[in-house]
């Protein structure tokens, strides 16, 4: 970001000063051109973003039979469902393990990689990234393989911990740690690339100047590198909080693979899924979706306006 901000103004200043001359004419002409180019995007934004949101809000105010206006009864149903609080609690537990793991792991690995001159750095970055290509169900099957003591390659570790069956390994109380590890394995590599890229954007002279003045490696990291990548760390934390609030696949399929040992309403999204497809309470499902949407929206607005990464500058 640092380099880009430095690079843009040269062309941009020239652009704005020229534009100003025939601004009115240019604007209306560009407005029409812009609109034509934007039509497909606007249609999709409407169909896939705005209409479903509006429709879900509408549905969330219906009565359970779907016949008429039910006020906030659907929200009441969703919030008082006995799994509601626990499902959000589970998200909190996952975050409590996952966020520190991600921040320390990703920052640590990115900073260590950045300090190396070895050719292996590229290879390692690629290896860390690889599980990302296996995201979703592919990663999930891999973790079933790791966690099931029947064929696990880390069986000695599992048996040392006292687990001899899959159900013992993925006991509900272990879920926050297991899911945090799954998400770290599949997601850390991408973020290492991102932070590493950010570190590369820091001019080398900065660090060298500091070293000439007697700064240690650690001091360069602490006082130069970290402050400069801080907006990304904020971004990365907020994005991961938003992501975790949406957890679905991992607890859902772990529940299926262990024949119901894990509650099918372990996360809010699973609860919403249950409302919609098991108890056919569409307004409650819609209400819960609206609540989740509001949470993501708040996080999204904070990211967009507060991290300084997306300043929409001209």
């Amino acid at each position: 970001m640092v380099t880009r901000l430095a690079a843009i103004p040269a062309t941009e200043v020239a652009g704005t000063s020229r534009r100003r001359g025939s601004r009115v004419v240019a604007s209306s002409r560009q407005g029409r051109g812009g609109l034509t180019l934007l039509v497909p995007y606007l249609i999709l934004l409407l169909l896939v973003g705005i209409v479903p949101t509006g429709y879900a809000i509408y549905q969330s105010f219906l009565t359970r039979s779907g016949s008429g206006f039910g006020g906030i009864s659907a929200y009441h149903d969703a919030v008082t469902e006995f799994q509601f609080a626990s499902s959000f609690g589970h998200i909190g537990l996952v975050l409590a393990v996952w966020l520190p793991l991600m921040v320390v792991g990703v920052m640590g690995l990115a900073l260590l990689l950045h300090g190396q001159r070895s050719r292996l750095v590229g290879v390692y970055r690629f290896i860390y990234y690889l599980p990302g290509a296996l995201a979703g169900m592919g990663n999930f099957v891999l973790w079933l393989f790791l966690l099931d003591p029947v064929n696990s390659p880390v069986r000695p570790i599992l048996s040392w911990l006292g687990y001899t069956t899959l159900n013992q390994t993925v006991e509900p109380s272990h879920l926050p740690v297991i899911i945090a590890l799954m998400l770290f394995f599949q997601g850390a590599g991408t973020w290492i690339l991102v932070i590493y890229g950010g570190l590369n954007g820091i001019p080398e002279e900065l660090g060298e100047a500091a070293k000439i003045d007697g700064a240690s490696n650690w001091q360069v990291t602490r006082w130069i590198k970290l402050p400069l990548v801080r907006p990304w760390i904020a971004y990365f934390i907020l994005l991961n909080v938003a992501y975790a609030s949406q957890l679905f696949l991992e607890p859902q399929v772990l529940g299926l693979a262990t024949e119901g040992q894990i509650s099918p309403q372990w996360t809010p999204n699973q609860l919403s899924f249950t409302f919609a497809f098991q108890i056919f309470d569409v307004p409650a499902a819609a209400a819960l979706s609206v609540i989740l949407l509001a949470i993501s929206l708040v996080i999204g607005v904070v990211i967009t306006t507060r991290t300084g990464l997306f300043s929409n500058r001209d």
Binding site: R19, A26, S27, Q30, G31, G33, G34, L35, L37, L38, L45, V48, G49, P52, T53, Y55, A56, L238, L239, A242, Y243, S245, Q246, F248, N269, S272, F273, A276, A285, A286, L288, S289, L292, L293, S296, L297, I299, G300, V301, I303, T304, F310, N312
Partner: peptide, 27 residues
Amino acid sequence: LHFRGRRVLLFLTILTMVMPNTVLVIP
């Protein structure tokens, strides 16, 4: 290009981009 609503649309784009795509599945 310069057109009315450009900033709003850019804001909406960034906002929808940072929201997890699972959030709209049920809607």
